[in-house]
Amino acid sequence: MSIERHDTKARMSRAVIHHGVAYLCGQVAGPDARHGDITEQTESMLARVDALLEEIGSNRKRLLSATVYLKNPGDVGAMNAVWDAWVPEGHAPARTCVCAALPANELLVEITVTAAVDG
């Protein structure tokens, strides 16, 4: 089975699909939300996950795993409130949430996900 890469640049691809599993690159809030609070950034980030999943033929009901990176540990409650409303009931992926330095100072949250795709 081949490896399918989407929107490949010099450093990374936005998504890589192999054996029916999609590996998405880290997603952060869009430019319009990058100076917002954790709720706004999480909503924007998850909307970007939705768009990328749709682009590759998957959706949030097909999530397998997620790793959430938070800049501030005190933001976990507000991030979880958005996450809980976003994940379809009965379709929660395996998830890890860690605190980490993020690539831009204004970013409060980043996520990487894997999802099943038809192939």
Rank of each mutant, 00 (worst) to 15 (best):
V109E: 00
K61A: 10
D37W: 00
V16T: 14
A47K: 07
V109K: 05
E89F: 15
A85G: 09
T67M: 07
V28N: 05
T67W: 09
A92S: 13
D32L: 15
A92C: 02
A51N: 09
D37M: 03
G57D: 07
D50F: 01
L64N: 11
H18Q: 11
A10N: 09
A94Y: 08
E40I: 12
R62K: 14
G119M: 01
R62Q: 14
V113T: 14
H35V: 10
P88A: 10
G26Y: 03
L46T: 04
A66P: 01
H35Y: 13
E89D: 13
G77C: 03
R34V: 11
L108H: 09
A100D: 12
V87N: 03
C99W: 00
H6W: 11
R5T: 10
P88G: 12
E106C: 09
A66D: 00
M12V: 13
A22I: 03
E55M: 07
A85F: 04
E40A: 15
L64Q: 09
H18G: 02
C25P: 00
A116F: 00
T114K: 06
K71Y: 00
H91E: 02
E106I: 03
G90T: 03
R62I: 01
N80I: 05
A81F: 03
L24T: 04
V68I: 13
I38T: 07
R95N: 05
A81S: 14
L53Y: 08
N80F: 11
V87S: 08
E110S: 13
I3N: 02
I56D: 08
N80P: 02
K9P: 01
A29V: 01
L63A: 04
D75A: 06
G74Y: 07
A115I: 00
E106R: 08
M79K: 12
R34D: 10
S58V: 08
G30V: 13
C25N: 14
D75G: 09
V49T: 09
V68T: 08
R95F: 13
A22L: 06
L24C: 05
Q41M: 06
E4K: 11
G26M: 14
T96D: 12
Y69T: 04
P31Q: 01
S2I: 01
P31I: 00
G119Q: 06
S13C: 06
